[in-house]
Design a protein around this nucleic acid. Structure first.
Lengths: 115, 115
DNA sequence: TCGATACATCGATAACGGTCGATACATCGA
DNA sequence: TCGATGTATCGACCGTTATCGATGTATCGA
């Protein structure tokens, strides 16, 4: 994850209690929260959090009630945010939660963490 | 906060690791994250988190670089989400962080919390 | 090689949301 | 009472985004 770390929102965001957020820090942090600012993406993360194994797109369209291109659109947003990881297995694309990113997101909100 | 608790997003949301989020739960949770999905609102929460005293709108327009109606718009969103509390002092409106809501938000993301 | 399957991308459309000027309302001082 | 000040609301504009059908691409089985 070293080479892609700088391109995801989870790697460039700042804690809410950090002193004097810059414009760029605020923008990156906002983009991270925006990744979870959609009901479909909240459901996706919820489904992945409660599933022990990675899940492919074809197993998400039915529980989400969305068309396949729409699901792919949401997966891309979550991967770009750094919250999900994508793994290609043959013609299937399996997605799993990036637990490190999720715990980092949780830590962002803690008011004690000054940076 | 008892009578307003049911109208804010922070009171109706569900943890990301809760089993089988309903449509309504996903929507409320998404609306909560949407409250922080804007750079200006991230900055507002950051300013309030680093300020020991409540802050009025007139002291936010300059550091945010936004017009007064825009700042009021953002404050309303944050109050509706339950993250901020509003207190009227004469002709000034003072806002402060709802620490309980913020810590609850942090707990939402923890994957261990199954409900 | 060919059809079927899984997924991503493209283009279009509709809805949402941030922004600001103008304005209304409330409060305070003179 | 009257003007000044602080906020909220309104209306409009515009960029963003969610959604889907159509299409392209890659993989697998026959």
């Amino acid at each position: 994850m070293t080479e892609t770390a700088t391109s995801t929102a989870i790697s460039g965001c700042a804690a809410l209690a950090a002193p004097a957020l810059s414009n760029k820090e605020a923008e990156v942090t906002a983009r991270l929260f925006a990744a979870l600012a959609d009901p479909a993406r909240v459901k996706i993360v919820n489904l992945l959090a409660t599933s022990r194994e990675p899940v492919c797109v074809c197993n998400l369209t039915t529980p989400l009630g969305l068309a396949q291109p729409t699901v792919s659109h949401h997966m891309k947003k979550l991967v770009e945010a750094g919250l999900l990881e994508r793994e290609q297995r043959g013609k299937w694309a399996f997605f799993s939660l990036n637990h490190e990113a999720v715990s980092k997101l949780s830590g962002l909100i803690d008011l004690e963490g000054g940076s």
